[in-house]
Amino acid sequence: MDSLVVLVLCLSCLLLLSLWRQSSGRGKLPPGPTPLPVIGNILQIGIKDISKSLTNLSKVYGPVFTLYFGLKPIVVLHGYEAVKEALIDLGEEFSGRGIFPLAERANRGFGIVFSNGKKWKEIRRFSLMTLRNFGMGKRSIEDRVQEEARCLVEELRKTKASPCDPTFILGCAPCNVICSIIFHKRFDYKDQQFLNLMEKLNENIKILSSPWIQICNNFSPIIDYFPGTHNKLLKNVAFMKSYILEKVKEHQESMDMNNPQDFIDCFLMKMEKEKHNQPSEFTIESLENTAVDLFGAGTETTSTTLRYALLLLLKHPEVTAKVQEEIERVIGRNRSPCMQDRSHMPYTDAVVHEVQRYIDLLPTSLPHAVTCDIKFRNYLIPKGTTILISLTSVLHDNKEFPNPEMFDPHHFLDEGGNFKKSKYFMPFSAGKRICVGEALAGMELFLFLTSILQNFNLKSLVDPKNLDTTPVVNGFASVPPFYQLCFIPV
C-alpha cells in the first residue's frame, strides 16, 4: 500500500510540474494548442506526416506557434517570411542545433551535424575549407563525379535492359564520391566492405524516417530501456565508426604531411598542428563522427533524390523527352556531361530543381535551437528552445509555385524558357546551418541524371499514369515507394 501511495504522489508531482512548466512558459512563447500533461501535443500531431499537421496548425495559430513534445516546448516556423527572418536575418541567433537524443547517444555531441557552439563552428569551418581545397564546386571533385558517372552508366548497362530496382546502384554512385573525398578511394560496386557500408546507410535513412524515431526523440528514456529499431540505428553508426577508425589508422601509418590526399589526411594534419593548443576540438573521436556525418549527409540524401527523380521522369515521359532533346543538342553522344553545360541547359536545370522542390526530401529539416534569449515577432523565446522549420511550407508555397503539388519544371523557367532562380528554393535548409555539401549534391544530381539520360531511355513496367509517387515514409525524410524500371541503351 505504501508503495502505491508513493507512486501516486510521484505521478501527481510530475503532472503538477508539467502543468507549471507549460503555464509559466506560455506567456512568453508564441500561441499554440493546449498541451496535455506529460505528453504535450503529441496526440494532435500525425507522426506519419508531421508536415501536414504543421500546415493545419498554422492555419489556426499563424506562421509562428508553439507545440509541446512531452514536456519540451518547440517553436514552429511556417512559411517563407518566418523562416527567412529566423535563419537568414537572425542567422546567428537561430544557428543552434536542437535536442536530438538519439544523435546524442550516437555521437556524444561530436561531428558537424549535431554539434553546437565553438566545437560546431570550428569543425564546420575546417570541413568547408577542406572540401573547397579539394575542389568542391571546382574541377578536381567534378572529375571524381564524372568518373563515377561513367562507372554508374557501365553498371546500368550490365542490367541488359531487364527490369531492376535502382535503389542499390543509385546509392553506390554518391557513396563512392564521398569515399573518394574521405578515403581517396572508390570501391567496386561488388566489394563486400562497400556493400556493408551501403547497407547500413540505407537502413539508417529508413529507420530515421519512421514514426518510432519521432517518439524516441521526444521521450528519450525509451532509447535506453525499450527495444526497437533505434538500437539497430545505433549499432549501424557504431559499425561505421569502427570502419572509419580502421581507415584512420591506415592513414596514420602512411600519411605524407607534405601531400595530403583526402579529408582524413587533412584532419590528422590539423590534429598535429593543434596538439599544443589544448583542449582542441580536433580529436580522433571528432574525426570519426565528422566522417560519419559526411557519409550520412552525402550519400543517402543524394541517392534518395536520384531514385525519386527517375520515378518522376517515368511518370512524366514528356519531361524526359525534353531533357534528352536538350542533352542531344548541347552535349551530344561523344563526350561526358560537365558542369559548364548546365548554363546552356535551362530546361534540365529546371527539372533538377523541380525534383528537389517537389519531393521535399527533408520536410522539417533537422531541429534548430536559439543560442540566446531572443525577441522574435513580439515573442520571447528562451535560450536553448528547439525550433522546428517547415521546409515544406517554403518549397510548396502556392504563391511562389502555382499548383505546388504538381510536378512542373516551369516553376523554374521564365516566359522565355530561361532558368529562373527562386529564393524559396531551400531543399538544403538556409542560413548558417545550410548543408555543407550543397554544391557537391547539386553537381552530382546534374551529372548523374544527364549521364543516365544521355545513355538510356527509361521504360516503366506499368502505365506511367498508374505510377504512385507518394512517399512511403514522410517523417525525417521523404522516401519514394518501391518501383522497377528498364534502362534501355540509346
Score class of each variant (00 low, 15 high):
L366Y: 03
K375V: 08
K59H: 09
R186N: 01
E81L: 06
M198S: 03
G79N: 09
T34A: 11
P227D: 09
L449V: 07
K52A: 11
E199Q: 11
R125I: 04
V248S: 05
L170T: 03
P260K: 07
M443E: 02
P464D: 05
T66H: 02
E415M: 08
W120A: 14
E400Y: 10
E438M: 11
N107K: 02
E147G: 04
S460E: 01
I374T: 14
D349E: 11
D408F: 02
M271E: 07
C151R: 06
D89H: 09
S336R: 08
E400H: 11
D408R: 03
H396G: 09
V38I: 13
D256L: 06
T385A: 08
L14H: 09
A477V: 12
I178D: 00
I359H: 07
K421H: 10
P363R: 04
N378S: 09
N218H: 10
L9V: 14
C372Y: 10
N403V: 09
S286M: 15
D397C: 09
F263I: 06
N403Y: 08
N277L: 09
P33D: 02
M406V: 14
T320M: 14
K273M: 12
V319I: 12
P480T: 04
S451R: 04
F425V: 05
L67N: 00
F446T: 02
C372F: 07
R335A: 08
D408G: 01
R186E: 01
I244C: 05
V352Y: 09
I331Q: 04
N176G: 02
V462A: 08
S343A: 15
L54M: 12
K232G: 04
K235S: 10
S18D: 10
L131Q: 06
N217I: 05
L391C: 08
L458G: 01
H184V: 03
R186D: 02
G111Q: 02
L128S: 12
K206V: 05
K158N: 10
H276Y: 12
T55F: 12
V394Y: 03
D414R: 04
D397P: 03
Y189F: 00
N56C: 12
S51R: 13
G137T: 12
G96M: 10
N107R: 04
F476L: 15
R150N: 10
L90Q: 15
I387E: 01
L11P: 08
I215A: 07
N133E: 12
R139M: 11
E285N: 07
H410G: 10
V436Q: 07
L9Y: 14
T364Y: 15
I123C: 15
S286G: 12
I223L: 14
K270T: 10
L391R: 06
T385Y: 04
P402V: 13
I123K: 05
D463H: 09
K241T: 03
A477T: 12
L306H: 00
K160Q: 11
L388C: 07
L71G: 12
T348R: 00
L312S: 01
D191H: 03
I359L: 06
R342C: 09
V83Y: 07
K48L: 07
L17C: 10
K160F: 06
T305I: 05
L449H: 01
D373T: 05
F168Y: 08
F219L: 14
K84I: 06
R132S: 06
S53D: 10
K432F: 05
K59L: 11
L311A: 03
Y308R: 01
F476K: 04
Q340E: 10
S51G: 14
V351L: 09
G137Y: 07
T302I: 13
M198V: 07
L29R: 04
C216Q: 12
G228S: 09
I374D: 01
S209A: 11
H316R: 06
W120N: 12
D224V: 06
F419A: 05
R342S: 07
R342W: 05
K465Y: 06
D262M: 02
I42R: 07
P63C: 08
V153M: 03
I141N: 03
R124P: 00
D89T: 10
S478R: 05
K160H: 10
N398C: 12
I74T: 09
F482C: 13
K235C: 05
C10H: 05
V490W: 07
I389G: 05
K52F: 07
N403T: 09
S254D: 12
I213Y: 15
D373Y: 02
G475A: 10
P37M: 04
G96T: 06
V8M: 13
H230W: 15
D360H: 10
V479G: 13
D468L: 07
L197V: 04
G437T: 02
L306E: 00
K421F: 08
Y68H: 08
M136R: 08
N378L: 01
I434M: 15
N289H: 11
R342A: 09
V355S: 04
W20L: 13
P427K: 01
I42S: 09
S140M: 10
K432L: 09
V5I: 15
E93Q: 08
V8F: 14
N378V: 01
I215Y: 12
L201S: 01
V6Q: 13
D397Y: 08
Q193I: 08
N218C: 15
L197T: 01
T299D: 01
K270W: 06
R26C: 14
P33S: 02
Y189R: 01
T469M: 11
F126A: 06
D165R: 00
M129R: 13
C372S: 14
D188S: 08
M136S: 10
S390A: 10
F425C: 10
S127D: 06
P35V: 05
R307A: 03
R150Y: 07
S286N: 15
L87P: 03
Q22G: 14
A439P: 11
H368G: 03
C486G: 04
S127R: 01
A103W: 15
N116E: 11
P35C: 07
K84A: 10
N259Y: 08
V38T: 03
A321V: 12
E93M: 05
K119G: 14
L208V: 12
G431M: 02
S429E: 05
G117P: 09
T470V: 07
D224Q: 15
R333G: 09
R26A: 10
S140R: 06
G431L: 00
F446L: 02
Q146I: 14
S429R: 01
S390K: 07
N217F: 07
S478V: 12
N455P: 00
K421T: 09
I452P: 00
G384D: 08
Y80V: 12
L268P: 03
I327H: 02
Q324D: 05
C216A: 15
G442Y: 13
E142A: 05
M129H: 12
L366K: 04
V473R: 14
G25R: 11
W212H: 06
D373A: 04
N133L: 08
N176L: 01
N116L: 02
N258L: 09
C216V: 14
K160W: 05
E272T: 09
N258A: 12
E199K: 09
G298L: 00
F487P: 00
F219V: 10
K421Y: 08
N258S: 11
L14N: 10
L453W: 00
D188L: 03
I215D: 04
R307Y: 00
D360C: 14
C175P: 02
S343C: 14
I452L: 04
G79Y: 02
L391F: 08
Q278V: 11
N133F: 05
S478H: 14
M198E: 03
L388Y: 08
P101T: 13
P260M: 06
L294R: 00
H410I: 07
I47R: 14
Q454P: 01
G384N: 09
N56M: 09
T167Y: 06
Q252M: 12
L447I: 15
N202L: 07
N403M: 09
K28C: 12
I141S: 02
R150V: 08
D408I: 03
G46L: 06
P227E: 07
A149V: 02
I222A: 08
L312C: 04
S58Y: 13
S280V: 10
F476C: 06
T159D: 02
T283P: 05
K432C: 04
V319L: 03
L208Q: 15
K28W: 08
T130V: 07
E148T: 00
D408T: 06
L152F: 02
P73N: 03
E85N: 06
P30R: 01
P337A: 11
G27K: 13
R333S: 10
F183C: 05
I452S: 00
D143Y: 08
I207G: 06
D262Y: 02
V319T: 08
P489G: 02
F476S: 07
D188M: 03
Q44H: 11
A297M: 02
D143M: 14
T302S: 07
F134A: 12
F446P: 01
V351G: 01
M129S: 13
D265Y: 03
R342Y: 04
M271G: 08
E199N: 13
V436E: 08
P409E: 03
K241Q: 03
G117T: 08
H368A: 04
L388I: 13
L54Y: 06
I182G: 00
P489T: 02
P489V: 00
D191C: 04
V394H: 04
K158T: 05
L311D: 00
C435Y: 00
F295S: 01
A477P: 05
L467T: 03
A173Y: 00
N107I: 05
I374H: 07
L54R: 03
V113R: 02
R97N: 05
Q146T: 09
Q324G: 06
E328P: 02
